[in-house]
Design a protein around this nucleic acid. Structure first.
Lengths: 222, 222
DNA sequence: ATATAGACTGATCACAAAGTCAGGATCGAG
DNA sequence: CTCGATCCTGACTTTGTGATCAGTCTATAT
């Protein structure tokens, strides 16, 4: 047997550093010298592991999007929760409510911008939205089935929720002082609540903050 | 009198070319050589008129945002219209529904991304949102006053509409096949209609398409 | 022991693109 | 006419950065 590739982890460190740098400086602003520095290696090693700068960045983004697209929780605190409580927690995880979520958001916007100009990226974006869509629509449909929610079209409602999340999320992301995180949360939740026939509140005040802290705790970690 | 600066229009042509190039290639992708080519001048002239690449791009963006932020219509066809009809037309003009609106949208997203990393740009973004907000909120408040709409909080409703517009707009902009322009239009309009107590439709079918064609006609021109 | 493949580096190349500079062309004022 | 300011250009310099390459080091297999 010929010696197998044994990686001392440098490759992964480079990828991780790349993701961080992309988030902080933008795809176009990233310099491989910085990535190498962050990863504690020489620039040559970066070129050794990746064919080109573009290849590195593409893989880094792919990695990050895959992670972000993975359903974000198997949140133990929500095991016995109602569908409304789960939805509340999902909303929380789709807003830039923690440092790591903000980072995901920036890469997200970066993807939007590039998808406009590079049609080959559109499937990537669509796939991400499709997963988010399924995540919400399934939960809503389940709630309708179990008569927790009023009859409604889960597809329509989901699209509206995703749009609200994007709209409020972006404004909060860019630091618009009129859209606090809490305002975004409440607006999205109350709009959703009305669509589901729950009146003005998705969940009661105390339960809402419980769901929130449960999900932010796990979003912040890692 | 000392000789006045006599500009043969080159400076403006450079700015216009810059805006076009930024929209098509992105702020980071813009090369002054290309801008110069488009404007039919030498690169040296670009440097003659603008201190630096950054200064040129900043001025170009400022120019474009100012134009886009200007209230977009004094739409004669809507002079005798109801507030609902006006709102329908405003929605149309806040979605990427024409080539020039798509261009504005791209620059808009570009601004979001940079505002995240350059706090000095945030006031620019906030100002743009403030104008949009006022535009919608005034119209809604007027409709409430005249009892065309149900009593509601125009600020809240406006923020929700702007979020929906951003959310649906972005997805349409990146070519997401599940969010057609028409779907975006109808979703935003129906959500707004419900907020205003008008049931499911903001305006009747025929009047809606009339308002749409009126506003796209003027959005496409120029 | 030594041959081999993978992991890694320092030095260097190549190139694109921003920015500079010296000077030419044009126009208005005196 | 001619002086000076404005407008404009081609050639050049500079710099940042992606990529290459020759070679070292280490671990493992035989």
């Amino acid at each position: 047997m010929s010696p197998r590739p044994r990686n001392h982890g440098a490759r992964d460190r480079i990828l991780a550093a790349a993701v961080r740098r992309i988030a902080s400086e933008g795809i176009d602003g990233v310099r491989i010298a910085r990535i190498a520095m962050d990863a504690g290696v020489s620039t040559s090693l970066v070129h050794y592991h990746f064919d080109s700068r573009d290849a590195l960045l593409a893989e880094a983004l792919e990695y990050s999007y895959a992670r972000a697209g993975d359903v974000r929780i198997a949140d133990r605190d929500l095991d016995g929760a109602t569908h409304a409580e789960r939805l509340q927690s999902m909303i929380e995880q789709c807003l830039p409510s923690s440092e790591s979520l903000r980072q995901d958001w920036v890469l997200w916007v970066e993807l939007w911008l590039r998808a406009v100009r590079h049609p080959e990226l559109r499937p990537v974006a669509e796939e991400l939205y499709a997963r988010l869509h399924a995540w919400f629509a399934d939960e809503i449909a389940a709630g309708v089935n179990s008569h927790e929610f009023e009859r409604c079209d889960p597809q329509e409602v989901t699209d509206r929720v995703l749009a609200l999340l994007d709209g409020f999320g972006v404004r909060n992301l860019i630091g618009d002082s009129t859209i606090s995180l809490d305002r975004a949360r409440r607006s999205v939740a109350s709009a959703l609540a009305r669509d589901l026939g729950l009146g003005e509140r998705l969940v009661s005040r105390t339960r809402a903050s419980k769901a929130r802290s449960a999900s932010t705790a796990q979003a912040t970690g890692s």
